[in-house]
């Protein structure tokens, strides 16, 4: 059995009290609980404070470009379907800069997991509105209040029929560990949007704010019922549901692709006879 200790302990560059600390601990525990050793896991990130998370644990890692974690992770997973590939990044990275990739990842349904740190603010660039900042919230960059409607990742994911859609909160660590594990186990694209307060730049969505609102989804909800899931996705007020909103059994990308059935690309040998046939077709 793999222990969370194998994922190591590192000094971080995060603020004391940042929600990222809790999420990092949950991630290690979740992976160890799945009996995955660090070398079996590839974490792929964009850029931002959230995207630093894999730096603080033992694992394979690609830190890519801001907004581009998902396509980079997609390429890696297609190259080696045997790896457990997890994309991890913030709300700005996934829902703003990388918005098109988020939509494409849901459609494509490659077997990877997206852990989206969602604190409703840009932390690394010091406090501008993110795609999930509430309308009207005042920031240094939006002194008259954030003028746009916030992005609703849950509703978009459910509406597009994503295979696994969940929301967690770092203030409910055991619950969050369970969500991460279910997401990684899910065959296909899985999304866990995680509330984790930014103590430095978001004075609205504080730990207490989330704690007061987050309500675990109970057994009365059928996550296979898309209409119910969609209704939950729009609950964002005095109560915000956390847990698995939606789940389905869409076949993961590549199930019907002969080119992926031949195993990891790194193990492939050039088939010279096949290439000769291909060349002969141009005679």
């Amino acid at each position: 059995m793999v222990s969370a200790e194998e994922y190591g302990q590192f000094d971080t560059a995060w603020c004391p009290g940042c929600g990222n600390h809790g999420l990092l601990a949950c991630m290690k525990q979740a992976l160890a609980g799945l009996d995955l050793s660090p070398h079996q896991v590839l974490m792929v990130t964009g850029i931002g404070q959230a995207a630093k998370a894999p730096l603080y644990m033992n694992c394979n890692m690609i830190t890519g470009l801001h907004g581009r974690g998902l396509p980079t992770a997609t390429g890696a997973k297609l190259a080696n379907p045997e790896l457990t590939v997890i994309a991890e990044s913030g709300d700005g990275c996934n829902y703003g800069e990388g918005g098109n990739h988020f939509l494409a990842a849901i459609r494509r349904n490659v077997d990877l997991t997206l852990i989206a740190h969602d604190n409703g603010i840009y932390g690394l660039t010091k406090g501008q509105a993110s795609p999930t900042t509430a309308r009207g919230q005042v920031t240094k960059a939006q002194p008259f209040g954030q003028p746009s409607e916030p992005f609703n990742p849950m509703a978009v994911a459910v509406a597009m029929g994503a295979g696994f859609v969940a929301r967690g909160f770092t203030g409910e660590p055991e619950h969050l560990v369970g969500l991460i594990q279910q997401a990684v186990r899910h065959k296909g694209f899985s999304l866990v949007d995680v509330f984790q307060p930014c103590v430095s730049f978001n004075k609205v969505n504080t730990f207490a704010w989330y704690k007061q609102r987050c309500r675990k989804i109970g057994p009365e909800h059928d996550p296979r019922n898309r209409e119910q899931a969609l209704a939950l996705a729009f609950e964002f007020g005095e109560q915000i549901p956390i847990g698995v909103l939606y789940e389905n059994d869409r076949p993961a990308f590549g199930a019907d692709l002969p080119t992926l059935a031949r195993g990891p690309l790194a193990r492939r040998q050039l088939d010279t006879a096949a290439l000769q046939d291909v060349l002969a077709s141009y005679l």
Binding site: I62, P71, G75
Partner: peptide, 8 residues
């Protein structure tokens, strides 16, 4: 880039 890092 992701695929190349993973052996493609």
């Amino acid at each position: 880039v992701g695929a190349a890092c993973a052996g493609g």
